[in-house]
């Protein structure tokens, strides 16, 4: 799993209410959700984000509600990967289940700056900040989780009979 993109950076405890405010939860259309992604934290996000961009954040990214609309909004806005120091657990499993790539790496989350260009090779657990030249290591996903991602998400894994 290789990704390369420009970084948009946020702080700790980015919650699901700012990722996609509840006033927009009367729809589950990914495009509509993407139009309001991050709106209460950073009103300019939807206009600025480019396909392939990488989100970098601090501790507890995605805390709060179980709304799958949050990873859906991020994915539909074009973000290719989220790097955080840690993720809230429901967000973590939702992202995996819908096939949004995420990686936990406190060192990278602390060192990478807004606007940096970052390249990753997650199979080998390598994150590379092309702007500063810094390199970071992470653990690869557990096999079970990799199986879900390789099959295109949990629904696809079940539809294919990989999980029953």
């Amino acid at each position: 799993m290789k990704y390369e993109g420009n970084v948009i950076r946020y702080g700790d405890n980015v919650d699901t209410d700012v990722i996609i405010p509840a006033r927009y939860l009367n729809t589950s259309d990914p495009k509509e959700l993407a139009a309001h992604c991050m709106e209460d934290l950073d009103a300019g996000f939807a206009g600025r984000v480019q396909a392939g961009d990488i989100l970098v954040a601090g501790q507890n990214f995605g805390c709060g509600s179980s709304r799958e609309h949050a990873p859906i909004a991020i994915k539909a806005s074009g973000v290719s990967l989220v790097i955080a120091a840690s993720f809230a657990r429901i967000f973590y499993r939702n992202a995996i289940n819908i096939g949004l790539a995420i990686v936990e790496c406190p060192e990278a989350a602390a060192a990478i700056s807004d606007g940096d260009r970052v390249e990753t090779d997650l199979d080998r657990g390598i994150l590379h900040d092309l702007t500063t030249g810094a390199e970071f290591r992470t653990a690869p996903f557990p096999a079970f989780v990799q199986q879900i991602i390789e099959n295109g998400g949990l629904t696809a894994a079940i539809a294919k009979g990989v999980i029953q």
């Binding site: 179980s66 709304r67 799958e68 990873p71 429901i90 499993r93 939702n94 289940n97 819908i98 998400g153 949990l154 629904t155 079940i158 999980i163 029953q164």
Partner: peptide
């Protein structure tokens, strides 16, 4: 708490 995909798979299997 889980997300909607987990709920879907839970309903199915």
């Amino acid at each position: 708490g889980v997300g909607s995909t987990d709920m879907a798979c839970g309903m199915a299997i």
